[in-house]
Amino acid sequence: MLGTGLSAHAQCGIANTAFKSGESLEYDLYFNWQFIWVKVGSAQMDTKMTKFEGKDAWKSYLITRGNSKLDKYFTMRDTLLSYCNPDLSPMYFRKGAREGSRYYVDEIWYTYPNGNCQLKKHRIDADGEQHWKTSTYRNCIYDMMSIFLRARNFDATKLKKGQVIPTPISDARNLSNSWLEFRGRETFKMNGSKEKFRCLVMSFYEREDGKSHELIRFYITDDQNHIPVRLDMFLSFGSAKAYLNNYKGVRSAMTSKIK
């Protein structure tokens, strides 16, 4: 690929057919307490075309906020920011998170020297201590945001039930052994409404300490937009769900919606 004159990051890119500049997705967050699902917060993800270090880039940010009900048990204030090249290969990632009593920051800068994927990592721990590390990989590496944008552009017509897609994801500390598994197609009725969607269902797994754990299950519209309408999250302190409650600026018609 390098021999054809393509830039190194092109190896890690994918054609974007799923979203356009100005897309905004809003979610309601729910947590399970003693078999009762309680609304505990909201999340919003916005994506637009902008500039990063003078270059054209997709900017996506996700803001997650718990409400007072959740704060009694676990404070959650997360802001994730991602810049990607026009071909969706990652350029920069930042996560600022207040989780419980901890606040920490992760940052990653991506470069692609000699066809490799190089990550310059920076972490600020809850105690204020800073850590810097540079890692170089022969394979493409992603973060929590860039892999999400990439996955929305998978060709669903080529996916087979049970198919596994390696998705190596890094934060400022570790590279995870993680993957997506396509679980098939389902019709999903939105929480608290009559809307129904035809969905692709995918699970995100991570292997740690010799065991595989399903972390998130995605229900994604089976149309060109591939918008997650429901997320089931399996957390260390319980189960949570996110339901899409509003969307605007989508690229294509929501043909997956069943009237």
Rank of each mutant, 00 (worst) to 15 (best):
D56F: 07
V40L: 03
K51C: 03
V40A: 03
K48A: 13
Q44N: 10
K48Q: 13
N67F: 01
Y83S: 01
K72R: 13
G66S: 05
G54F: 03
R65S: 08
S68Y: 01
L80A: 09
L62C: 15
T47C: 06
K51P: 06
F52A: 00
W58H: 01
Y83L: 03
T64K: 01
R65I: 11
G66H: 01
W58D: 00
G66T: 10
A57I: 02
F52W: 15
K59H: 15
I36W: 10
A57L: 04
W37A: 05
D78C: 10
E53Q: 04
W58M: 02
T79C: 11
L62S: 14
M49Q: 11
K39G: 06
L80W: 05
M45H: 08
T75F: 08
A57V: 01
P86F: 03
L70C: 04
T79E: 15
G54K: 03
G54Y: 02
K51N: 09
S42P: 09
V40G: 01
F52L: 01
K51W: 07
T79S: 08
M49A: 10
T64I: 15
Q44W: 02
W37R: 08
K51I: 05
P86V: 01
F35P: 06
T79G: 09
S82Q: 02
W58Q: 01
S42E: 14
K69L: 11
D46F: 11
M76C: 15
K39Q: 13
L62W: 06
W33V: 12
Y61A: 09
L80Q: 11
C84F: 04
R77P: 00
D46M: 07
T79N: 13
M49P: 09
Y83Q: 00
W58Y: 03
R77C: 02
F35T: 09
V40T: 08
Q34Y: 13
L80T: 08
K72I: 05
I63K: 12
W37Y: 02
G54L: 07
T47A: 10
I63F: 09
T47D: 07
L70G: 04
A57E: 07
T47R: 10
M49T: 14
M76D: 08
G41Y: 14
D78E: 05
R77K: 08
T79H: 09
K72G: 15
D87C: 02
D87R: 02
L62Q: 12
A43M: 10
D46E: 10
R65D: 06
Q34E: 15
Y83H: 03
D46W: 08
G41E: 14
D78W: 03
K72E: 02
G54M: 04
G41A: 03
E53C: 04
V38D: 09
L88A: 05
S60Y: 05
W33P: 06
K55R: 14
N67A: 05
P86T: 00
I63N: 12
W33S: 00
I63R: 08
D46I: 12
G66E: 04
E53G: 02
L88C: 04
K39S: 05
F74P: 13
D71V: 04
I36L: 14
